[in-house]
Design a protein around this nucleic acid. Structure first.
Ligand SMILES: [Mn+2]
Ligand SMILES: [Mn+2]
Ligand SMILES: [Zn+2]
Ligand SMILES: [Zn+2]
Lengths: 139, 139
DNA sequence: TGGCTACATAGGAATGATTCCTACATAACA
DNA sequence: TGTTATGTAGGAATCATTCCTATGTAGCCA
C-alpha cells in the first residue's frame, strides 16, 4: 500500500525515531512490499534514489526500526535475514524452492498455546509458526 | 538415554553412513543429551576423547547425519546453529534469557494445518512452531 | 586375512553477512 | 539560526561456516 510523507512522519514521530531521507526511503520500500526483502535487496532498491547510501545505514536503520517496533525480522533457518514491514501478528508460508515468504493472517494460529503440562515452567510471551512447502510456481 | 555400540552400528548401517570413531563420538554426544548443543559444544565435548578431532569433521559429520535423517538442525533466529538428536516430530520452547531450547512433544501441534483459504496454492510438507518466553530460572 | 578404493579427517584458508569504528553531516529543538 | 545529540558513509573487523587438499582409514572383495 502507498505511504505518504505525512503518514510516515506520524509513524516515526510516534515511535520517537528521527526521520531522515535514508530512513524514509528504507522504511517506505519495506512497508510497500509484501515480499520480505533482505537488507541487501533494500540497499539495492534505495540506492536508485540515494546513490551514496551505505549498507551500514541500511543495517543500522533496520535495527532502529525493529527496536521501535516499526519493522520485524523474519528468519528462515540460517539464510540471510529477511525484513517485514507488516508488524501485525501473523505467520508465514515458506517456499522450499524459490525461498519466497508469504504472509498467513490467521486468528487461530495467533491464538495457539502450549498445554500447561508442556510449558515446563516457562512464562510464554509469544510464538512463531512457519509452514514449509512448494509454492504454485515451484511444484 | 544411553546408546550402546551395537545400536549405533545398526542406526548408521540402516542409513548407509560409515561408522568412524569421530562420528560415533559426535552422534553419541548429541543423542544422549536433550540440550540442543551447538557444533562447537559438540567439538569441545568430543575433543576430550579425541584431542585431534577438527571442527571441520564435526561440521561435516553433522551434515552427513542430517542428510541421513539421524539428526536435525534447530535454528533460533540467526544465532549459531543448534543440533538435535531427537528426530521424532516435535517443537520447541525457547528461553529469551539463557537461550535454552526445550522439547515440546505435543500431538496437537504436530497436526497443525493452515486453512485452505490461506494456503495460497502452496503444497505444504511440514511446519515448525516455536514458543518464546522465559524459563523458570530466568523469570 | 590383506589390499583397494571411495570416502573421511585434519588443518588451514576463504567466505560473506553482519557488526564495529570513526570522522563528518544533519534533524530536531529552542 | 546555532547547538548538540544522533545519523551517515566507508572501510575494517568478526566469526560461524564452508572450501580446499594432502593424508588416513572403513568397508568390501578376492
Ligand atoms: Mn510477513
Ligand atoms: Mn528438540
Ligand atoms: Zn516457490
Ligand atoms: Zn532461561
Amino acid at each position: 500500500m502507498r505511504l505518504n510523507l505525512e503518514e510516515l512522519y506520524t509513524r516515526f514521530r510516534r515511535h520517537a525515531v528521527r526521520l531522515t531521507r535514508q530512513r524514509a526511503a528504507i522504511y517506505t520500500a519495506l512497508a510497500e512490499t509484501t515480499s520480505h526483502p533482505t537488507a541487501d535487496d533494500l540497499y539495492q532498491a534505495v540506492k536508485r534514489q540515494h546513490p551514496m547510501i551505505s549498507r551500514n545505514t541500511v543495517y543500522y536503520t533496520l535495527g532502529v526500526l525493529r527496536h521501535a517496533g516499526l519493522v520485524q525480522e523474519v528468519n528462515v533457518g540460517h539464510e540471510v535475514a529477511r525484513y517485514d514491514g507488516n508488524v501485525m501478528e501473523h505467520h508465514h508460508l515458506i517456499c522450499l524452492g524459490c525461498r519466497q515468504i508469504v504472509d498467513i493472517m490467521d486468528e487461530a494460529l495467533n491464538e495457539l498455546a502450549v498445554s500447561d503440562r508442556q510449558t515446563k515452567g516457562f512464562h510464554i510471551l509469544g510464538h512463531r509458526v512457519e509452514f514449509h512447502g512448494y509454492c504454485a510456481g515451484c511444484q
